[in-house]
Amino acid sequence: MEKIPILRMGRFLLVTIQVDLYDRLAENLESDLVHMVRKTGARGVLIDISAVSIIDSFMGRILGNIAMMTKVLDAETVVVGMQPAVAITLIELGLPLKGVHSALNVERGMELLRSKIALQDGESQDDDIYHSIE
């Protein structure tokens, strides 16, 4: 069974989707990710979709689900690297991916996650304290 690998980078999880997802693969990714967030206590999830050429309403729903589920588990989800054509199509389709944060690339996504977490935890808490807790 094919699987989408989930990489752990400190407090974040990184998923790079390289293939066009068929439904079961996407559903597996959803449940794998939620379990990983729970297991690692990750505070953020980055989903890199720069290689994805099509997002239909099903994929859009999966992304929305992941964002909502991880939110419940106290982790923010950022979708990074969306292709312009995909963005235009999603808007035309009527699917603005509410609740999903987005960033231009992985680096910007990391920045966004850091700032969101800092905001939640209060400005005083910096990275060092965080690492010692982990």
């Binding site: 979708v79 808007i91 991916l97």
Partner: peptide, 10 residues
């Protein structure tokens, strides 16, 4: 629409 698409891109 243009604004929404831009936001989708991040």
């Amino acid at each position: 629409k243009t604004v929404s698409a831009t936001r989708l891109m991040g």
